[in-house]
Simulated assay, not measured.
Amino acid sequence: MSFALLWIPATLAASLLQTARNLTQRSLTDAIGVVGATQVRFLFGLPFALLFLVLVCLASGRLPPPPDLRYLGFTLWGSVTQILATGLMLAAMRERSFSVTTAYTKTEPVQVALFGALLLGDALSLPKFAAIVLATAGVVVMSWKPGEKLSAAGLRPAVLGIAAGASFALSAIGFRGGILALPDGNFVLRATTTLTWGLVFSSLILAAYMAAADRTALRRSIENWKPSLAAGFLGAAASQFWFIGFSLTSAANVRTLGLVEVPLAQIASRRIFSEGTSRREILGMTMIVVGVGVLLALSVG
């Protein structure tokens, strides 16, 4: 039985779970602060990753593949750059609007495609790259409001936002590199093993930082353990499906398909609040859908 196209439903599931996780984390921001709300996806997600790993091992009848230094290096790289990306994104959002920052960070799929081709040797044909660029440009069109111009004052948040996108791209490449570096095991076992190691590294790094620099946020996240646990579960579940996608296809394919959450969230928001959709937003959504559609057609073909 071929699992080659399983990355498609896995990525869609990851996108939905990530949206739910973001909503849960947002509700925690007022109670425990930005840093505290950010770290719950790691610290409170780790127990669920361990549970997933136990279940996968029982189902497959195999132990996790033994890590080597190359694997640990890739996974640590993915963890550190993921934390860095989040910090850069939050820094950019302090100086520019959410929509413009989103436009900057959503250059990630293009950067993932380039980094993947250069660092991992992932195949990148010209038609696939064009589809990735089209879908990414659609996000920029949707996010950039008319009249907003890049001035000298806006250069710093632009650099921060694009750097955040690059860091997210490097994180995806690091985790995919770790999955590929494991010597054996089926794709689910390798994905779950990498998820667990990644959360171990991220939890240790952030817990050490918060214990030294922001103990109040760490204490408040523990006091608000119920919503923190929910965010941790959703974060671990979303990452589980992202990593399954990474184990089956290039990170560029996964991240580009993940852009479908942008028009879906826009449509849902408009329906809930009965607001109209501008021509610019319709154009952006069309570009995303066409780009993703072309990518899927090329992948299936």
Rank of each mutant, 00 (worst) to 15 (best):
R94M: 09
S97G: 15
F98T: 08
S99K: 05
V100E: 04
T102S: 12
Y104T: 01
K106G: 02
K106M: 14
P109W: 02
P109C: 10
P109V: 07
V110G: 05
Q111N: 11
Q111R: 02
Q111A: 15
V112Y: 00
A113E: 06
A113K: 03
F115K: 04
F115L: 12
A117M: 10
L119H: 12
G121V: 05
G121C: 01
A123Y: 09
L126H: 12
L126V: 14
P127W: 09
P127I: 07
P127N: 04
P127Q: 02
P127L: 07
K128D: 08
K128H: 11
A130M: 09
V133F: 13
L134R: 00
L134K: 11
A135Q: 02
A135K: 01
T136C: 04
G138H: 03
V140T: 14
V140E: 12
V140A: 15
M142V: 13
M142C: 12
K145R: 15
K145M: 13
P146R: 13
P146E: 15
P146G: 11
G147T: 07
G147M: 11
K149F: 11
L150G: 09
L150H: 12
S151C: 10
S151T: 15
R156Y: 13
A158Y: 08
A158V: 07
I162L: 15
A163G: 08
A163W: 00
A163D: 06
A164P: 01
A164D: 05
G165V: 00
G165F: 07
A166E: 05
S167H: 01
S167G: 06
F168G: 03
F168T: 03
F168L: 13
A169H: 00
L170D: 04
S171I: 00
A172H: 11
G174S: 05
G174L: 08
F175L: 03
G177S: 08
A181M: 10
A181V: 03
L182A: 04
L182D: 02
L182W: 06
N186G: 15
N186V: 07
V188D: 01
L189C: 04
L189D: 04
L189N: 02
L189H: 01
T192M: 13
T192E: 05
T192H: 06
T194D: 01
W197D: 06
V200N: 09
S202H: 05
S202Y: 04
S203G: 10
L204P: 00
I205Q: 06
A207T: 13
A207I: 08
A207R: 10
M210E: 08
A212M: 11
D214T: 04
D214L: 08
T216R: 14
A217L: 05
R220G: 05
S221N: 03
S221L: 10
I222Y: 12
E223A: 15
K226D: 14
K226Y: 12
